[in-house]
């Protein structure tokens, strides 16, 4: 069987006037709009850059002086530990609440739903204030048998430090959000997976831990990365508890030297830097949990400008 093109051989232009040989090449792309947008963006970038350099009120010397100062760095470390601990608390609470909501025991499911309702419904800022002022509600916190003897008791102000109040406020709020993420992840795993595991005689915990959770991770990880990045910035709310994390450290400095804008910029630069590092980490974790899906996650490079702009010459394939 021969098709028209090969039957014609070297004579590629047939009666209908279409050059078959040219059709074998890659078509030339139109890039007019790309050049226009590139021009607009470049010009805007120039304007913003010009203003950043020439406006003396940015005080870049002051910005970078404080950026690398020990005070902001100590604040940054506190922000990082707050973020890490709150996220760990949030994930643990989230998994427990998610399992609770999916439990066959409807009382457990209702309690879990109620806790999610509370911790997600009240603004995290207000929750932080409540935990900060816990001593106003419960001045003393005791361990003992209800209505029976007490084993020991502590002054609430001593036990619930600003740091602990921050962890409780941020962690429980985070737990409520994480529970929804985890729940969506668990529900995303095909029911056949649980059935196959059951048929092999696996216990419920083994099925959850070895079969369902690892597969749910693919759904859980990306939003958890977002939550972590979001948490990094939410920790700045803790400044109301007078806990000197990154933002409050900056505030303490500018309340003394009145270099408000430079210090806010210095703090922002740190937030941006850590966010970038976290995003990179998220990429590697996602790649790990994507294994076995057959689609390796690649670093998405910027559209290949050079090759896409160069129209390729029509290749002539000579048929023997």
């Amino acid at each position: 069987m021969t098709d028209t093109a090969s039957a014609l051989g070297a004579e590629s232009v047939s009666d209908d006037g279409i050059d078959r040989a040219l059709l074998r090449g890659r078509p030339r792309q139109h890039h007019g709009l790309l050049w226009l947008t590139a021009g607009i963006v470049l010009f805007a970038t120039f304007l913003i850059g010009y203003s950043l350099v020439t406006n003396p009120r940015f005080e870049w010397g002051v910005v970078f002086g404080w950026f690398s100062s020990e005070r902001l760095f100590t604040g940054l470390l506190r922000t990082l530990s707050l973020t890490a601990i709150s996220m760990v608390v949030g994930i643990v609470v989230g998994v427990l609440l998610a399992l609770g909501r999916l439990a066959p025991n409807f009382i457990i499911a209702a309690v879990a739903a109620f806790l999610v309702w509370i911790f997600r419904g009240v603004p995290v800022f207000v929750q932080l204030l409540f935990w900060g002022f816990i001593a106003a509600i419960y001045p003393r916190i005791a361990v003992g048998i209800p209505f029976g003897p007490e084993f020991f008791s502590v002054d609430a102000n001593v036990l619930i430090t600003p740091f602990l109040a921050a962890i409780l406020g941020l962690g429980l709020n985070e737990g409520a959000y994480m529970s929804e993420i985890v729940r969506a992840g668990l529900l995303s795993v095909n029911r056949g997976q649980t059935e196959a595991a059951k048929a092999l005689g696996m216990r419920r915990f083994t099925i959850l831990w070895r079969i369902v959770l690892p597969q749910a991770m693919k759904i859980i990880i990306p939003p958890t990365g977002n939550q972590t990045i979001s948490m990094l910035k939410t920790t700045s709310l803790v400044s109301v508890l007078a806990f000197p994390e990154l933002l409050y450290s900056a505030q303490l400095v500018y309340s003394a030297n009145f270099k408000t804008i430079p210090l806010l910029i210095a703090a922002s630069l740190w937030y941006l830097l850590v966010t970038s590092v976290l995003s990179l980490g998220q990429f590697y974790i996602e790649r790990h949990y994507n294994r076995g899906s057959g689609k390796p996650l690649k670093v998405r490079s910027f559209p290949r400008f050079s090759t896409s702009l160069r129209p390729r010459a029509a290749k002539r394939e000579v048929q023997p």
């Binding site: 095909n190 056949g192 997976q193 059935e195 196959a196 595991a197 079969i211 690892p214 597969q215 949990y289 294994r291 076995g292 899906s293």
Partner: peptide, 8 residues
């Protein structure tokens, strides 16, 4: 539908 564990 086989139901092999895809992550293993």
């Amino acid at each position: 539908s086989f139901n092999l564990f895809p992550h293993m």
